[in-house]
Design a protein around this nucleic acid. Structure first.
Lengths: 200, 200
DNA sequence: CATAACTCGTACACCGGTGTTCGACAAGAG
DNA sequence: CTCTTGTCGAACACCGGTGTACGAGTTATG
C-alpha cells in the first residue's frame, strides 16, 4: 500500500518523474508558505502548471498528496527509533527524533488544515500516533506516566509542546539546539503521576 | 489610553456608535471564521461596507483594532482574578478564568496572525503576559515552580496547553467542562521543579 | 519507428475579495 | 435652522488565484 500500487494501466517513466518532482516541490513550498499557489509549486518543480493539473485534478488533492507523503516519510523515519527499555528514556529519544520533523513540516500542516477536513488530517496521522500512544500506555502500565488523564490528551500535549517550541524559536527567544531538552524536561514532568517525584 | 482618547476634532455620536458596532461585529465574525470578509463583518454590524471603509482604511487595520480590543477586554476580565496566596492555587484560578477567553478568541488570534506582523501580536499581548509572568516568578521564588527552564518558556507552555485543549474539543474527544481541570493538572505537573513531588 | 503518452505555453473565463468613486440622503451639532 | 459630518447602495476597476481549452512539440515504449 505504501509502494507504487501500479494503478490502472501503469504510468510512463516520464510521468512518474514529473509526479515525484511535483510532490517534492509541493512539500518544500508549502513547508515555507502554507498559502503557496499552484503556479509557485509548478515552477519549483520545474514543470508547467498545466502538467501539474494533468496529474492532480485540483489544489486540494495536491495538498492532500503532499501532506500524506510528508507524514509517511516522517513515520518511516520515526520507525527506526528504539522505544524499548525505560519508557521515560524512550520518550526522550522519540522527542529528539520527532522534534525536527514537526518543526520542518509545521507550515505544511497549516496548509493541510486550511483545505482538508479535520477528519482527513487525523486519519493521515493515525499511523504515527499509534506508536506514540503505545509507548505512553506502556509507561502508564509501569506507573511511570499518569493515568488520571486520558492517553489521547497526553498525546495532544506532546504535539502541543513541540508546537510551542517552534513558536518560541521564531519569536527569537530560543535557539533550535535548546529545544529538544526543553521539550523533554517539560513533557516528562507533565506526564509524571500525581504525588510522584519528577525526574531529576 | 484605554478610554476614548478624544482624537483630532472629536467624532460625532453617530459615528462612535457605528465604530462600536463594527468592532463588535469584527470580533464576533473573526471569532467564528478567521477569513471573514469585510462585507461579512459590515453586514453583521448592520452597516454598509462603505461606511466601514470610512472608519478603517483597510482590512488589516480592522483586524488589528478588533484583536486589540479583544485582548484589552480579556486583560480587564483577568485583572479581577486574585493571584495572591499559594501560587499553585492562584495558577489554577488564573487558568480557570483564562481558558474560556482563550477558547473563544482562538479563531480571532488566527486572523490576526495571518495579517499582522508577529511583533505586533506580541506587543498587544504584553499587558496580559506580564501578569502571568509575575505569578510564575513568584512561584519560582517560593520553590514551587521549576527554575531550570526560562520563565518565558513556561508562559509559552501555558498558552500552548490551552490551545491543545481547544483542539481536543473540536476533535470531539473532550467536553468543554473537563478542559479546565485537565489543563490545570497538566500545567501544575509540568511546572513542578525536578526531583519534587507532583501535586496530588 | 510508429504510436500513444506526456509536456508546454499561451490564452481564456471565472470567481471572490479589496478598495474607491459617485450622488443622494439622513442626522447630529452649533 | 443650517451646515457639516456621516451613511448608504450601487457600480467600478483591479488583482490574484483557479481550473480549462487548444495546438504544437517531445519522449518513452513496444
Amino acid at each position: 500500500m505504501t509502494a507504487t500500487p501500479t494503478r490502472s494501466p501503469a504510468k510512463r517513466a516520464d510521468a512518474q518523474r514529473s509526479i515525484a518532482a511535483i510532490l517534492a516541490a509541493a512539500v518544500e513550498c508549502l513547508g515555507r508558505n502554507p498559502d503557496a499557489s499552484v503556479s509557485e509549486i509548478a515552477k519549483a518543480a520545474g514543470v508547467g502548471r498545466v502538467t501539474l493539473y494533468g496529474h492532480f485534478p485540483n489544489r486540494v488533492d495536491l495538498v492532500d498528496a503532499a501532506f500524506a507523503r510528508a507524514v509517511e516519510e516522517g513515520h518511516a523515519a520515526l520507525s527506526e527509533v528504539d522505544l524499548e527499555g525505560d519508557p521515560r528514556a524512550a520518550m526522550a529519544r522519540l522527542i529528539e527524533s520527532s522534534w525536527l520533523l514537526v518543526e520542518q513540516s509545521r507550515s505544511l500542516l497549516l496548509a493541510a488544515q486550511a483545505v482538508l477536513p479535520p477528519g482527513r488530517i487525523r486519519a493521515l496521522h493515525a499511523g504515527p500516533a499509534e506508536r506514540v500512544q503505545r509507548l505512553i500506555e506502556r509507561g502508564q502500565a509501569e506507573d511511570l506516566f499518569r493515568t488520571d488523564l486520558p492517553t489521547s490528551w497526553l498525546v495532544g500535549i506532546m504535539h502541543s509542546v513541540m508546537h510551542s517550541a517552534a513558536d518560541e524559536i521564531n519569536a527569537g527567544g530560543l535557539v533550535p539546539d535548546q529545544a529538544a531538552p526543553f521539550i523533554t524536561a517539560t513533557l516528562l514532568a507533565a506526564f509524571t503521576p500525581p504525588g510522584h517525584r519528577t525526574p531529576a
